[in-house]
């Protein structure tokens, strides 16, 4: 079973289908990419090179925007993307990307 899956052909992120460990490698379009940290089911990985301000597409719809350049194979999460609507709250008692 492939480690990654795309939920919609229009998506520019894959989701993790099998939990990944640090230093695992994943194959994207014939190229291997090293995973830097453990990622559980459903986490997102860039399928294309993303620039700041680019829409992140998952389920075929925009789910937010990149806040910095994201290379193919990199984890896409709070550190490099943000909501286009509401800031995201974490247990550090602060809003991320407000």
């Amino acid at each position: 079973m492939s480690k990654l899956m795309k939920l919609n052909p229009a998506d520019n992120v894959y989701i993790v289908r099998v939990p990944l460990q640090a230093n695992d490698s994943v194959e994207i379009e014939g190229q291997n990419y090293l995973i830097k940290q453990a990622l559980g089911f459903g986490h997102k990985i860039a399928a294309t090179l993303l620039h700041p301000g680019d829409k992140i597409i998952k389920f075929g719809i925009p789910i937010g925007s990149a806040t910095e350049q994201i290379n193919i194979g990199e984890h896409v999460h709070l550190h490099n993307m943000k909501s286009d609507y509401l800031p995201t709250y974490t247990l550090n008692n602060e809003f991320v990307n407000k």
């Binding site: 986490h43 896409v76 609507y85 509401l86 709250y89």
Partner: peptide, 27 residues
């Protein structure tokens, strides 16, 4: 929700790989 300043989004959602309100909403 904009006036409340807080969407329907808890810290565990982010730990579980959800990043934004719209992503959670589509799910």
């Amino acid at each position: 929700y904009t006036i409340m300043g807080h969407g329907s989004f808890a810290p565990g959602n982010a730990d579980g790989g959800l990043t934004t309100q719209e992503e959670k909403g589509m799910g």
